[in-house]
Write a protein that binds this DNA or RNA. Structure first.
Length: 599
RNA sequence: GGGGGUGUAGCUCAAUUGGUUAGAGCGCCAGCCUGUCACGCUGGAGGUUGCGGGUUCGAGUCCCGUCAUCCUCGCCA
């Protein structure tokens, strides 16, 4: 007989009755009736009920039947009488009468309950992540993660992609996020950087003649956390295709994502091909480049209708070149005064000066601003929004870019509050035709996205078009308002690269010194290539229906990029620093906070 | 770095307008119980209300500071 088990805790059925078995696992719950004790023993696979007769010799050796200790039982499988069957357990038709017991690992009193699904302070969970991961929900999420990643590998291999590794210790590349740096011992004063993505390596692999590459790639960016952004590291399904167009990338990703989302979720998924929305249209209609298409509300431009009106707050904005945007919300006129007040407060919270509204209710227009508007204007607005009695139109007036941004937030909030969002669907779209350049804060032309992207229209457009009108073969894929990934057709021509950088104010020497590998490689015959890298953690977040990315990561860091279980980051010995020729110069106020995990 | 929320027993939470000895459920400890499966019953321990200061006859409650944590803006080629 195996030292620890002949069966798992999820395995035994009524057909096994009469056999002698051995199982090991964690004490999930104890029900002590004095004359008889029931223990639910749990492992990765399930729960099995063990019945203990207190007259057994091992019973006296146990001080506490404490939950979460690991035990090994040897005993007989008994078919339960019909009244005692537990239909909620896979093993509920049987139980094991214990003949022998071995304590494998005793547990102290646990800081939070494993067997109950109750909310619990997150730092406590992170400090005891090994206990937290025993809990059903997190355990299931990580099983899902494993299955999804395994399936992604299958699908990618099936599409003809090769999985390849790229370096983790590499060089810092300009632009992008802050790097994590690793000091070199051999080269005093020099540093490796952890890759923010394997971007340049995968392009080099294409140039090396590999046709289709993929990798579940770790990416390291030193940026502050968000609910959907874990600090430190995250994973991408990184891929690149040689001799490929934008459309080729879309087709592969539509097949792979549609397969994974339909296999691992019961939600309804868009049929392929997914919608394609030009960037400018997305900004106009949704006020964002990652629209949640489950929300039926859209932004409309009402600027002209307010140009000559008596409502100075709006006409003034129009006169100074700004926009008035409107959102028509059907059937929303019956909402309470509180609802409208809270919407105004929300709009102010996201940077708006206010939030106007017209409420067509019981045959009249109820609104603080209606008295400033002519009947003709009211009719035109009504026509624009396609509204009638019972509907409401909301208005945002501001500098055009700001108005769209605020409008995007108001659209989200209205969608939530009016419960317009169907939580049982996945709505995908591609955002295409991103601008190649934009103006930075100093009104200087700068790459708006990825400097490696191929400009649409080639050299012709680079030479002849206003830089701000040049589009890139740059695309995002968005699901339910979550940006899953950016990708691009790459610029594989050294001449186009130099010209593209020149427009952004960098001369040839910058390209040569900052991207030496690509610049050199592309002069030896580069294939046209394109790629993308969907975020694996975010895909799993969507599939697991988790609002927080930490719920799909085994060992996440907290918001301050600390691992509370491993106490990372931590101080190191002075000899380690000496070996690396490093000296620590702390900021004035942080002596106390420099120790991790202390209290 | 900025804005917001939260912080009360091991855990989740309550405590009326600032007013008695800060409560409940779970967990823990002791006892009882032979069919439970969130077992049940009886009893018990457990609190510097994050920390520091202030206002007040009186502070868990109000004010200031600080720390922790989450959300968010900046940031994320």
């Amino acid at each position: 007989m195996h030292q620890y088990r002949t069966h798992t805790c999820g395995e035994l059925r009524k057909e096994d009755a009469g056999t002698t078995v051995r199982i090991s696992g964690w004490v999930h719950s104890v029900r002590d009736h004095g004359g008889i004790i029931f223990i639910d023993l749990r492992d990765h696979y399930g729960l099995t009920q063990v019945v203990i007769d207190p007259s057994k010799s091992f019973y006296k050796g146990v001080d506490h039947w404490r939950v979460e200790s690991t035990l090994c039982f040897t005993g007989n499988v008994i078919k339960r009488i019909p009244e005692a069957v537990n239909p909620r357990l896979d093993t509920g038709a049987i139980e094991i009468t214990a003949e022998e017991m071995v304590t494998l690992g005793e547990s102290k009193v646990i800081p939070f309950q494993v067997s109950k699904d109750e909310e619990c302070n997150e730092s406590l969970r992170l400090e005891h992540r090994f206990l937290d991961m025993r809990r059903q929900k997190l355990h299931d999420n990580l099983v899902l993660r494993s299955k999804v990643i395994s399936r992604l590998r299958e699908l990618m291999t099936g599409e003809g992609f090769m999985e390849m590794q790229t370096p983790i210790l590499t060089s810092s590349s300009p632009e992008g996020a802050r790097d994590y740096l690793v000091p070199s011992r051999v080269h005093p004063g020099k540093f490796y950087a952890l890759p923010q993505a394997p971007q340049q390596f995968k392009q080099l692999l294409m140039t090396s003649g590999f046709d289709r590459y993929f990798q579940i790639a770790p990416c390291f960016r030193d940026e502050d956390a968000r609910a959907d952004r874990s600090p430190g590291e995250f994973y991408q399904l990184d891929m690149e295709l040689a001799f490929a167009t934008q459309e080729d990338v879309f087709e592969v990703n539509e097949r792979v994502l549609h397969a994974v989302f339909s296999e691992f979720s019961d939600k309804k998924i868009d049929e392929t091909p997914f919608q394609r929305i030009p960037y400018l249209e997305a900004m106009d209609k949704y006020g964002t480049d990652k629209p949640d298409l489950r929300n039926p509300l859209v932004l409309q431009d009402a600027t002209e209708l307010f140009r000559t009106c008596d409502f100075k707050a709006f006409s003034g904005v129009v006169a100074s070149g700004g926009s008035v945007l409107t959102i028509a919300a059907k059937g929303c006129a019956g909402q309470s005064r509180k609802f409208f007040d809270e919407m105004i407060k929300f709009a102010q919270g996201v940077g708006s000066k206010g939030l106007g509204y017209l409420r067509w209710n019981e045959g009249e227009v109820q609104s603080p601003i209606a008295k400033f508007l002519s009947q003709e204007t009211l009719d035109s607005l009504k026509n624009l929004g396609g509204v009638s009695d019972g509907d409401v139109m909301f208005f945002i007036a501001d500098e055009s870019k700001v108005a769209r941004e605020i409008g995007g937030h108001v659209r989200d909030e209205l969608g939530r509050r009016l419960e317009l969002i169907d939580s049982n669907v996945f709505k995908f779209c591609w955002i295409v035709d991103f601008p190649m350049y934009e103006l930075d804060d100093n009104r200087k032309v700068e790459f708006s996205h990825n400097p490696f992207s191929m400009p649409q229209g080639g050299m012709d457009d680079l030479l002849n078009k206003n830089p701000l009108d040049i589009l890139a073969y740059q695309y995002d894929i968005v699901c339910n308002g979550v940006e899953l990934s950016s990708g691009a057709v790459r610029n594989h021509s050294p001449e186009l690269m130099i010209k593209a950088f020149e427009i952004a104010g960098y001369d040839q020497s910058v390209v040569e010194s900052k991207f030496p590998a690509l610049y050199k490689a592309f002069q030896f015959g580069a294939p046209p290539h394109a790629g993308i890298a969907p975020g694996v953690d975010r895909i799993i977040m969507l599939l697991a229906d988790e609002p927080n990315i930490r719920e799909v990561i085994a060992f996440p860091m907290n918001q301050k990029a600390q691992d509370l279980l491993m106490s990372a980051p931590c101080e190191v010995d002075s000899h380690q620093l000496r070996e690396l020729y490093l000296q620590v110069k702390l900021p004035k106020r942080s002596e106390e906070s420099s120790t991790v995990g202390g209290e």
